[in-house]
Design a protein around this nucleic acid. Structure first.
Length: 630
DNA sequence: TACTCACAG
DNA sequence: GGCTGTGAGTA
């Protein structure tokens, strides 16, 4: 399958090879190999595995009546993401629609519900998919020292060090012959039989018709020979083996099917991974890049899908990739047609030649974390309608911050909080404030978010002036500028480092929780079924509001007598004597959700005998200094 | 710093 | 289409 027929003189030097072993240089080496791995119909796969279904079951992931992911089994019935649920059911009567997890209005925790949720009093939670995506990412990080998460379901990897290690293992004496780094790499007569490519090769002059996807078609190669004429072919070949290995690890440990792309640059790898789906990978040899690219449009490249892409094709006229690279010999020629935007011209010039060699960068730190919801009709037409949703937002943010901490073993806290809303008239405003002393304690943070967001809301409402703000069609709460409190022991530490700016005195005052109220939802504690039952029994026995609140929290109707206390979790006004009972209800809810989650997780693990639990990658990534094999 | 826009998946 | 995220641009 692999034919070795080396040129007399290699186009590459020892330096090119050695650079692969350097995280900062490998992407720029002419021998660099990047792979891109994409989880196919990810949300649908998550639901399929969560529900213990087979790959052949026609699962779709549903949000209200829309399909947000269609499994490949469902695609066989002609179902696409454009279909509404009803249309999809007509196409496939035994369709399995799985709705996303949801937050109920006023509640701070998401869960999977056993009824069809309505957008009027629910908010979709994509948290389960983020968590699964993170597990996949961790597998990549454990096996590759340079991973760039491109989105929840796709990553780029720089395979330089892995390939370098493999080459040294195969040819231990390779570097002995080196006198100077600029020396030409030696000729190879043969390579060990154990080395064989994985995936579909794109060659110099193939007809490239991606064959239709076949479920269960896991044949991972087209039966053609891989011609190794120089070192770039060999590194690509080894890259395909590594990419395959990474993908199979994900499948074995977590159960997810992926597609992969292997190529010299990110743009090439990305287009390659989309070429054959699902559960396939595509190899782009360097000499095949022009042939591969001619089947794409400029708008197929990342960042050219929208307005800039339109602008470019307006200026240049609709043109294929190959004709752009043929017609314009220099970036200057291109820039002339692009309002002298030389930067853009340069980028296009490189992209059409497959020569845009951007580095793989680890997204060091989260920048923003937001929660938002679109409202239908006039379901939110005053402050009281909005408050329960803000509580949902807060609950969601706190949960995610908690996850973030557990995941990275850090204490990341946002220093900014932004509340935004769009009114029916299409006018959008937002208001943000600074959190000068973000507490480590989640309950205190929750309380702080409550006070701050209410302040923000008051200020936000003013921004509309005389124009009516309500009803609104969207609201969002975003936290940003995360700082790691782990290293700060005192407030002074934090203040001196984070807040060099002058502080608004009212800000400072606001940010100290007036009286940190002990919230009933406890933090990390092991719950037993017994304690769960006891808690729940107590609350249901005593609380008359429990049954009401379960499906339809009587939020607005509740009287707001001054003697009543507003529950910070759901904004209901609760008579003081009932307050503790009411709190217990929330506690029970929290426990129930937690238990559901734990059950689901361990159940899922059992389903996949190979042990999904091993993805609980406790191994910590030391931020920027991964140990290299050499 | 506060806010908007464009883009992606 | 609904939802979440990032980065650039603008006063």
């Amino acid at each position: 399958m692999v034919t070795v027929r080396f040129r007399d003189h290699s186009n590459f030097t020892y330096k090119d090879l050695l650079d692969l072993n350097d995280r900062d240089k490998s992407y720029a080496s002419p021998l660099s190999v990047i792979c891109h791995i994409d989880l196919n119909a990810f949300f649908a796969q998550c639901e399929q595995l969560r529900l213990g279904l087979a790959e052949s079951d026609p699962v779709v992931c549903v949000q209200w009546n829309a399909l947000i992911a269609v499994s490949y089994a469902a695609r066989d019935y002609g179902i696409t993401r454009m279909d509404r649920l009803e249309q999809a059911k007509l196409k496939c009567p035994h369709l399995i629609p799985a709705h996303t997890a949801v937050f109920k209005k006023g509640e701070p925790l998401w869960k999977y519900v056993d009824y069809v949720p309505s957008p009027i009093n629910h908010k979709v939670s994509l948290d389960p998919y983020r968590r699964e995506g993170k597990k996949v990412l961790n597998i990549f990080r454990e096996n590759c020292d340079l991973v760039e998460k491109a989105s929840v379901d796709e990553s780029f990897m720089d395979l330089g060090r892995l390939i370098f290690a493999k080459i040294i293992e195969l040819f231990p004496s390779l570097l002995d012959g080196m006198k100077d780094r600029t020396d030409e790499l030696p000729k190879l007569d043969s390579i060990p039989e154990s080395i064989d490519y994985k995936g579909f090769i794109i060659n110099k002059s193939d007809e490239l018709e991606p064959e239709p996807a076949i479920i269960g078609d896991s044949e991972e190669k087209n039966n053609i020979e891989f011609l190794v004429e120089d070192w770039d072919d060999l590194v690509t070949l080894i890259g395909s083996m590594i990419c395959f290995d990474l993908r199979k690890k994900v499948e074995k440990i977590l159960g997810y099917k992926t597609s992969g792309g292997i190529g010299r640059a990110k743009t090439i790898a990305k287009l390659a991974s989309g070429f054959k789906k699902p559960d396939q990978q595509t190899i782009i040899r360097n000499d095949a890049i022009p042939n591969f690219l001619k089947h794409f449009k400029l708008s197929d490249f990342w960042s050219f899908g929208g307005k800039t892409g339109n602008y470019i094709s307006e200026q240049l006229g609709e043109m294929s990739i190959s004709s752009i690279s043929k017609n314009y010999k220099t970036p200057i020629e291109l820039a002339k047609l692009l309002d002298n935007n030389i930067e853009l011209a340069n980028k296009i010039f490189k992209i059409v030649r497959g020569e845009l060699h951007d580095p793989i960068t680890e997204k060091e730190q989260i920048k923003t974390m937001g929660a938002n919801k679109n409202f239908r009709g006039k379901s939110v037409c005053n402050t009281n309608d909005l408050l329960p949703w803000i509580n949902v937002f807060i609950g969601e943010l706190i949960l995610r911050i908690q996850d973030l901490d557990e995941e990275n073993n850090t204490t990341l806290r946002p220093v900014k909080l932004t509340l935004g809303a769009t009114s029916t008239t299409g006018v959008r405003h937002s208001k943000q404030c600074t959190i000068s002393q973000p507490p480590k304690d989640y309950n205190q943070l929750r309380e702080l978010f409550h006070t701050l967001s209410r302040d923000l809301l008051r200020n936000l409402e003013k921004l509309w002036g005389d124009a009516p703000m309500y009803p609104i069609v969207n609201a969002s709460l975003t936290s940003s500028t995360f700082v790691d409190l782990t290293s700060f022991n005192t407030l002074d530490d934090l203040m001196s480092t984070v807040q060099k700016r002058k502080l608004d005195p009212t800000d400072v005052e606001r940010n100290i929780p007036s009286s940190p109220p002990p919230l009933p939802i406890p933090k990390k504690k092991k719950y037993t079924i017994d304690s769960f039952l006891t808690e729940k029994k107590t609350s249901s026995d005593q609380s008359s509001t429990l049954n009401n609140s379960d499906e339809n929290p009587p939020l607005e109707e509740t009287s707001s007598d001054i003697t009543d206390t507003k529950c910070p979790d759901c904004d209901e006004f609760i008579p003081s004597e009932e307050f503790q009972t009411h709190k217990d209800f929330h506690l029970a809810m929290a426990l129930e959700t937690k238990l559901n989650k734990e059950f689901e997780e361990s159940y899922g693990e059992k389903l996949l005998k190979k042990g999904r639990s091993s993805a609980k990658t406790s191994k910590k990534f030391s931020k920027n200094q991964t140990k290299l094999p050499f």
